[in-house]
Nucleic acid binder design. Sequence first.
RNA 1: GCGUCCGUAGCUCAGCUGGAUAGAGCAUCGCCCUUCUAAGGCGAGGGUCUCAGGUUCGAAUCCUGACGGGCGCACCA
Length: 534
Amino acid sequence: MLNHLSNIVADMVSEKLNDIDGIVFNKIILQKPKKPEFGHFATNFCFSLAKEMKKSPVHIATEYADIISKLDFIESANAVSGFVNIFLKQEFLNEISDDYLKNGFQAEKKNKKILLEYISANPTGPLHIGHARGAIGGYYIQKCGSFLGYEIDTEYYVNDAGKQMDLLGLSVWLRACESILSREVEFPEDYYRGDYILDIANDIYEQDKNIIINKDLKKIADIAKSKVLDLIKNDLSKIDIHFDYFVSEKSLYAKWDDTEKIIKDYCYKKDGKLWLETTKASDEKDRVVVREDGVPTYLAGDILYHKNKFERDYDTYINIWGADHHGYINRVKSAIKFLGFNEEKLEILLSQMVALLKDGKPYKMSKRKGNFILMEEVREEIGNDALKFIFLTKKFDTHLEFDISKLKEQNSSNPIFYINYAHARINSLLEKSQFSKKDIENHNFQNLSQESSNLLLFALMLSETIENSFNQKAPNKLTDYLYELSSLFHSFYNANKFIDNENEKDYLKVSIIVANSIKIGLSMMGIEAKEKMY
RNA sequence: GCGUCCGUAGCUCAGCUGGAUAGAGCAUCGCCCUUCUAAGGCGAGGGUCUCAGGUUCGAAUCCUGACGGGCGCACCA
């Protein structure tokens, strides 16, 4: 069981109070106080008890602080205007630290299977910077989830059916006609531009020129799709993203007739189309699933896809969608209900749009016009680590604003450098010290100052930070934590000399724990902590 | 118009299961390298938490209503 420090302490305090009083404390919630002098932990439960007990919070706090301070792992517990501020004993901190150094964080299996679907960008062009948020966010969710003991499979839904595929085929063919066959062609307004279209055209022509000459659009589209998908996979592999499954939309349609039978009670015909009564669930209007010409709509594909997903029997399904799809949630959830599945198992995370600026001005991207910024382009410019970190510094549902020009000049102002720097400094201190790492790890704290115990305590709170971040799907909780931890360390470093200090072993043991937490934290983002900065 | 996300320092954003003096980065201005990595630290200035009501011992946080912005409102994906 992954036992978080604040839980351990809260449990022991609750238990003690239950023993002496009629009131049952389920669990006291401990907070990290704003100021270090308020203690290692603080709790405000006296405020909520005041009404029930008909006593003033201050009175209650005084009474309980006295009891709490008698616990053998507590150094002191003080009542301050209704709060109880708790300081832990050095021996207790030592015990927790040794456990951390020896066992790390070992999460027990949660026996919960999660299917995480993310990115699922249409295979009509390489990934652009707007996709990066979902991509990196999904990767993060997967890492944290696995760390916490969930079993997570990842999946990419490939929209390889419909009009856009026709358009992709046509775009490639037209480019081939223009550039290879030197014919005069007229491009429709909304065709796909970009160099990759020409590359694909060239490839196909080299492989079998007849495909182009005979204008075999179906075949062209088919080849183009798989080539684009390869491009996407290649971009993703560079940031270490790999999927367990790719599911093709096209391949699902073979089962449409059977599926239609299951939901037929919720369907009706009107104007030659088949409608789904999604208003009977939670939607605002009914939706067409099959058009007059017999071609199923995109929703039909999603019905098939979610049927397919739910038949695979996971405990939870997480989809990460772009926020522009939010109107789609009710439709899909309605359909899942009609199929006889529990739609509450589906959690949809909307990642808000990334608004791009260029030199302070709004920068509009359009895939079809070809004026989009590729994720790969930015990755090459600023590197894997910065790309990943930056996209995780904000909640999914915050609108994110990036200035492309600034992003490209990221240097010392980039927080990832700051965090790595702390890690590298610790590494360097350990090299400088006359004591071996083993000596330091085996050392028992002798004389922890308030600053050092504060730093230590914060470093020990890594696991609960990851859990909170995962549960709330808020990656910024971890990036903020790592930044703050690094900041505490840098401060401490500047204020204290480590080597040849009488407290050298104390300081270095704390530092090892800080470095561990930084390392594990960064690994959740697929970033390797640096041992050296130069 | 309806739905949805949001509105906190000059800018980008934390803080939101109600609690101690509302925080950070960037930008601006000072200070700290004969001392372990200055890609660092310390300090200063900068706020009517959009507005108006309500709930309460206590509201940036919860509720209602305005106002302002992004996105969506397809038989496109």
